[in-house]
């Protein structure tokens, strides 16, 4: 059974068809990339899978169960975690608190139990703090654990967002441009990080990225979107030489130039 199975997904905003008839099967443990020029509809695909937009048409099956139309928090609880293209951390909270919050959706303590600090909550709180620290180790942020999240440089904020997503206990991780704003060495570290967490947490990864070197290196399979339509899919080396893909990207360059 595939982890994620998306069929005929379409998203219309008024007259604009942002995504048209998008199909996708993700097998367990895969790292699949979604690429395409700016405005192609990549983030929109993520937003539909993660429950932020209700698709105009189509179906989304996660581990065999339909999830389209469910709320974003329910989808996270079902096991799909995401990061955002424009980093969205809880600005005034500390780095470790940002990660601890990720565990909250899985605690068993009730509201009253937590307020009264009953034994169950004490245990869970301890586990949350320890779990958060372990994840910070994973993304190499232990030294800044008590700093304000937004005081971190860009690259570290991106890693923190990944740690926060991992805290929710996902089976599928959606990364929206995780390497954006990173320098080449940070990008290399990120690559290693993604490979490591995939192994350690038995993840399936679906990612959007503009850094082609990164995408070609890490993804086993790619899907290419242009104006909402899938124009190509396959292993990276095939995509690299696909004339339609080159044209789509060249078109973008030409549009940009004149």
């Amino acid at each position: 059974m595939s982890v994620l199975s998306v069929g005929h997904l379409t998203m219309k905003f008024g007259g604009l068809v942002a995504v048209n008839d998008f199909n996708l099967e993700l097998e367990k443990g895969e790292i699949v990339g979604l690429i395409g020029p700016n405005g192609a509809g990549k983030t929109t695909v993520f937003n539909m899978i993660a429950g932020y937009y209700v698709p105009t048409e189509g179906s989304i099956l996660f581990q065999g169960r339909p999830i389209q139309g469910r709320k974003a928090n329910q989808i996270t609880k079902a096991g799909i975690a995401r990061t955002f293209q424009n980093i969205r951390l809880f600005s005034e909270l500390s780095v470790i608190e940002n990660v601890m919050i990720g565990f909250h959706c899985r605690i068993r303590s009730t509201f009253l139990g937590a307020t009264l600090k009953l034994p169950l909550y004490r245990r869970e709180e301890k586990r949350m703090a320890e779990g958060a620290m372990k994840l910070l180790e994973e993304v190499d942020l232990t030294d800044v654990a008590h700093e304000k999240a937004t005081s971190l440089p860009y690259g570290k904020q991106r890693r923190l967002e990944i740690a926060r997503a991992l805290a929710t206990g996902p089976a599928l991780l959606l990364l929206d441009e995780p390497a954006a704003g990173m320098n080449p060495s940070e990008t290399q570290d990120l690559l290693q990080l993604i490979l490591r967490i995939r192994k350690d947490y038995e993840l399936t990864v679906f990612l959007i990225e503009h850094d082609m070197k990164f995408v070609m290196e890490i993804c086993e399979r790619l899907k290419v979107l242009d104006y909402g339509t899938t124009i190509a899919e396959g292993p990276p080396h095939e995509i690299q030489n696909n004339p339609r893909v080159i044209e789509a990207y060249l078109g973008e360059v030409q549009r940009a130039q004149g």
Partner: peptide, 14 residues
């Protein structure tokens, strides 16, 4: 308070 969309993303029933 800080980011409702992100709160949903970490599974909080806002």
């Amino acid at each position: 308070k800080y980011d409702e969309a992100a709160a949903e993303a970490v599974g909080i029933n806002t």
